[in-house]
Nucleic acid binder design. Sequence first.
DNA 1: ATGTAAATGTTATATTATAACATTGCAAAC
DNA 2: GTTTGCAATGTTATAATATAACATTTACAT
Lengths: 167, 167
Amino acid sequence: MYTKAENNQISVNSLIHDHKKCVTEALSIAERLCSLRGVQLTTIRYQVLELIWSSHKAVKAYELLDLIKPLQNAAKPPTIYRALDFLLEQGLIHRIESLNAFIGCNCSGHQHELLLLICKQCYEVEERPALKVMSALTEEFSDANFVTHSQAIEAHGLCAKCNELKS
Amino acid sequence: MYTKAENNQISVNSLIHDHKKCVTEALSIAERLCSLRGVQLTTIRYQVLELIWSSHKAVKAYELLDLIKPLQNAAKPPTIYRALDFLLEQGLIHRIESLNAFIGCNCSGHQHELLLLICKQCYEVEERPALKVMSALTEEFSDANFVTHSQAIEAHGLCAKCNELKS
DNA sequence: ATGTAAATGTTATATTATAACATTGCAAAC
DNA sequence: GTTTGCAATGTTATAATATAACATTTACAT
């Protein structure tokens, strides 16, 4: 039986993938990447990243603040926002604009042009390369003389699981 | 010569289109649509819509509050947010999630699947049908078993004019 | 060991958004 | 034509999100 805390972390995705491995990989990639880049993945930054990866649901800054307080007594809003800024800069997380929330990014070191499928029911976010969408976007940008760099695109709806449960 | 106030309204787009006509049309479409739907485009709601249409730049809620105060002395945050909620529900405006701001929507009565090109320098927003992008998205959603309704997609970059000025 | 820049601590406050309840105004039913 | 009900607005208060500004500590290059 799960403890309450563990149970809270159970996500739709965690039922169909090895989430521990998922987190371990993400964290070790982050460490490697930061080391390569000569930037510091400090304890606080690591802990915030770990907390974000504890599920595939988008997490809010003040939720992270509550979660990190047991680990970092002095934590205050700037503690979290600074760590988030760093992680965003390094491409280790995404900011979900429409939720004011954050998720881990799988794409480190790869392309960052991703489609984010955001479930408006469970707040899980799925990253998809969506190559056709991205190439159509590139073409459209060019037609519009709009200049942009790789970026994530957000789409909102119901994920497969939530949609099944509904019916 | 432009007065200062008028000059502030001058946008990149306004240099190449008849903005007055643009606004008049948007407002009359809004009136027609609301009347057809049996919903009330009240004075406050109309004024907010008009203020939003005063440029093609995304406008923030508290900016609108300042702008409407001369017209509505009693205006307070809920005054604006309620009008915005109404206009969003009726599809008369878009909310730009990444800016916490709003722009008029041209698509009333037509499809609402649009690509929004958001200039991060001047905050102008261009709506484009971007049919190829939308059909690629539909396909991707279907592959992912993701269920979604028509929605706007946001992209960030530099508009043609800002990009020219830069170089 | 020491100077420097980056990171973190700390206080305060800005910005964005909504809850909750009171009042007004308008229109349908009587 | 009044009553009644509901939508809209007024009003107060506060919640939620985010950053500014300055002090202190830490890491580490010299």
